[in-house]
């Protein structure tokens, strides 16, 4: 069947897409979403998932920052949605065992992303 195409999440997603915490734990991931000019993206929403950490969602602040606290996991799948993104971008972050705090900036026009 023809799949339903994606459309941008737009600038007003916060009305419907509430932030959601991961499964609680000592690991932390934080960073900024940055556009092609290196400016923070204040209207992006970052979602993460792994079987261990569960699912989390965090809208970026005016400084483009997002953060998650979660149970230790070998990796997190990441998807980012924003105005100006007609589809989400996907990436993955891997963690060394025992890592407590990881900084991970998402540079929309410099970083490599996956397409499923």
């Amino acid at each position: 069947m023809t799949a339903t195409p994606s459309q941008t999440v737009g600038p007003f997603f916060a009305i419907g897409l509430e932030d959601h915490p991961c499964v609680e734990g000592p690991s932390q991931l934080e960073g900024r979403v940055l556009d092609g000019a290196g400016e923070p993206v204040p209207d992006a929403v970052v979602e993460v998932w792994s079987p261990e950490a569960g699912w989390g969602r965090c809208g970026t602040g005016s400084d483009g920052r997002y953060s998650f606290a979660f149970r230790e996991t070998p990796h997190l799948e990441i998807q980012v949605f924003a105005r100006g993104l007609l589809r989400q971008v996907r990436t993955r972050v891997m963690f060394e065992p025992g890592t407590q705090r990881t900084t991970f900036d998402i540079r929309l026009q410099e970083d490599a992303f996956f397409v499923v």
Partner: peptide
Amino acid sequence: GYRSTELRAPKRLYLL
């Protein structure tokens, strides 16, 4: 045509 894509559309895409 959608102006906000200019500084946000990713440039490096790989097949998973």
